[in-house]
């Protein structure tokens, strides 16, 4: 398929020129027609600044925001994957009760706008549930070392509960989509595979572990990647409940300095790089799995 030598034809040249002209036109409009004083100079400082007193480079709010986005995405993905696998198995259970629970969860979440869900979860559910467990008081009473460790993996004590509710709300709605992917993946495996497992005398768990899941995983990897990338992008939604992630920090800088377009462009580029690298990683994983198919 890839044996054809790349040959540039006239049409390709025309399309490339047209695209280049469009790009130039947009940049031209932005720089000359828009009444806006560009000020890219202040941006690098918001990533890192040099502290004169200590002689160190210190991470500023955009870097901190980026790290929060990454932490948020990783935890939300993990929790969503756990929720997704459990409810996905419920959805294919033999018992009506489990199927109904799984179905209710998926339909409830899937048919609600994520933004509304985030608001409801943050203002009603998390403000009722988290104090019940005394999370905030517990974090504040931890030793300095524990707090440091928690700050490394989650968030600073002052932002801890907000971080947890942000993570949970993203995980909750991403879990619903992953549920459907898990269900579809398992159901796509031919009946014969189950029967073969049965014939070999494998228990349900062994069938899942050794026969069904390895095949299903390969099939669901592309849609699953979509959901993981969506998790990163959706993490921007929680900026509305003031979780101090990348988008939120960006809006704070905009409100303080009134440097808007530069900040938006920078943030967009960061999200693009993040999501694109994730896509590339999964692509390699897919190729790896394909190569080992025979084994």
């Amino acid at each position: 398929m890839y044996n054809n030598k790349m040959r540039i034809k006239v049409l390709d040249v025309v399309i490339l020129i047209a695209l280049a002209l469009l790009a130039i036109f947009i940049v031209y409009r932005l720089t000359t027609q828009l009444n806006y004083k560009w000020n890219w100079g202040i941006l690098p400082n918001y990533f890192f600044y040099y502290e004169d007193e200590t002689g160190h480079w210190v991470a500023n709010i955009l870097t901190q925001g980026l790290l929060t986005t990454i932490r948020l995405s990783i935890w939300a993905t993990l929790v969503a994957a756990v929720i997704g696998v459990i409810t996905g198995l419920m959805r294919i259970s033999d018992r009506l009760f489990w199927r109904l629970v799984g179905r209710s969860y998926v339909e409830l979440i899937r048919n609600m706008p994520p933004l509304v869900l985030v608001f409801i979860f943050y203002f009603f559910v998390s403000s009722q549930i988290l104090p019940l467990f005394g999370v905030d008081d517990f974090i504040r009473s931890c030793s300095a070392d524990t707090q440091k460790l928690l700050a490394y993996f989650f968030a600073k004590p002052s932002l801890f509960t907000a971080f947890i509710s942000g993570t949970l709300s993203i995980a909750l709605f991403q879990g619903a989509y992953i549920t459907e992917i898990v269900r579809a993946g398992i159901q796509s495996i031919e009946k014969g595979q189950w029967e073969a497992g049965n014939a070999l005398g494998l228990t349900w768990l062994q069938q899942m572990r050794w026969v069904i899941m390895p095949q299903a995983l390969k099939r669901v990897l592309p849609p699953l990647t979509n959901e993981f990338i969506n998790t990163i992008k959706y993490s921007a939604i929680v900026s509305v409940i003031s979780i101090q992630e990348l988008t939120f920090q960006g809006t704070q800088i905009m409100a303080s300095t009134y440097v808007t377009i530069e900040v938006w462009v920078t943030i967009t580029a960061i999200y693009l790089v993040m999501c694109f690298s994730l896509s590339m990683c999964v692509r390699r994983l897919e190729i790896y799995l394909k190569r080992n198919e025979g084994i």
């Binding site: 600044y49 502290e51 210190v58 500023n60 709010i61 901190q64 504040r140 704070q252 409100a255 303080s256």
Partner: peptide, 21 residues
Amino acid sequence: RGTLIVGMDIFVPWAMKDKKG
């Protein structure tokens, strides 16, 4: 608690982020 927790939003010059965040 030993801490007063204050809610605010950015309004120039009431409250702003400086260069060091």
